[in-house]
């Protein structure tokens, strides 16, 4: 099935690989196929509004491009929503959820904040108000720490810990959605360099049983081949060195070797994982305009 036919794409990767850029590109590419898309990010990490030149983050959806909204999920807002659905009495919601006890509770139970945020996403997909879901596709900008897909892990372990009650039931719904490869796709973002590729391989192996949802890999900031193939570079290199252009030689050598190790690293990733890699070109700035170029590249993902 096409990547864009999923209901949720979790875009993940280590810090500094341009996860947000990749998430935005994927969202724009899906919107170009006619999908109604929302980019969800976790508050505190909110970069999406900045990329699109919006003034700031908001829990209420903001339009950032044709067919694309963005929302920043904060745990307290999400808990509020959850409470409203469960308690149905507005006064009680205010009493319970705007309370320092509740804030302490959120802090104290590991995984509870993650669960609230994922719960909100699940509600957009499964328990929407009205006749049809507000979006065809949610693209989640999902940070990865050392423990792989932390969010899914924490839903599972919260479920382990609670075993009964509304929180438990919610975690079970979340786990069902996130572990269904027909509804949820994981996209891992990487860079074309040795260490980031190692980290991506580490991340992918930590997915364990969730490997089934891994649908694609996106390489960000990909450099194009700096020098033409013919005539062979060593011959020209000697000629340049002989004519005293050593600075040019070292510049070209460096560019060539950066490119070669990029190709080697990406080839290694491709062979190890067995999935095609979508390449997003390296651009001097990432903004609403240049994202369109990246989105075009992300359309390669449509047919994996």
């Amino acid at each position: 099935m096409s990547l864009f036919d999923h209901q949720l794409i979790a875009v993940t990767g280590k810090g500094g690989v341009g996860r947000t850029t990749a998430a935005c590109s994927i969202a724009l590419a899906a919107a170009a196929q006619g999908k109604r898309v929302c980019i969800a990010e976790l508050a505190g990490l909110a970069r999406v509004p900045e990329v699109f030149g919006l003034p700031g983050r908001s829990y209420a959806p903001q339009r950032c491009a044709p067919g694309v909204d963005t929302m920043s999920l904060s745990a307290l807002d999400c808990l509020d929503d959850f409470g409203r659905k469960r308690l149905k009495i507005q006064a009680l919601v205010r009493l319970v959820f705007h309370n320092r006890l509740t804030a302490a509770f959120l802090d104290a139970i590991p995984g509870l904040q993650d669960m609230q945020q994922l719960g909100k996403i699940r509600h957009l997909i499964e328990e929407y108000e009205g006749d049809e879901p507000p979006y065809d596709l949610i693209v989640l900008d999902a940070p990865a720490t050392g423990h792989g897909l932390t969010l899914l892990d924490s839903a599972r372990s919260l479920g382990e810990m609670t075993r009964v009650g509304p929180f438990y039931e919610e975690t079970q719904h979340i786990v069902r959605l996130l572990s269904d490869p027909d509804r949820t796709a994981i996209v891992v973002v990487t860079l074309g360099e040795e260490l980031p590729v190692n980290e991506s391989l580490e991340l992918i192996s930590s997915l364990g049983e969730d490997r089934a949802q891994l649908a694609a890999i996106v390489a960000n900031q990909v450099r194009s081949q700096p020098l033409p193939d013919a005539p062979p570079w060593p011959k020209l290199r000697d000629a340049l060195a002989a004519s005293d252009q050593t600075d040019l030689v070292s510049l070209a050598d460096a560019a060539q070797s950066t490119w070669t190790s990029q190709e080697r690293a990406l080839a290694r990733l491709r062979t190890t994982i067995g999935l095609p890699i979508a390449r997003l070109p390296r651009l001097p700035v990432v903004d609403a305009e240049s994202l369109l170029i990246l989105a075009e590249a992300a359309e390669q993902l449509e047919e994996p």
């Binding site: 009680l92 319970v96 006890l101 509740t102 810990m161 609670t162 009964v164 009650g165």
Partner: peptide, 14 residues
């Protein structure tokens, strides 16, 4: 009341 609601939501085991 708040405590009661939180207990119900989290479950007594927790």
């Amino acid at each position: 009341k708040v405590v009661g609601v939180l207990h119900r939501m989290a479950g007594e085991r927790v």
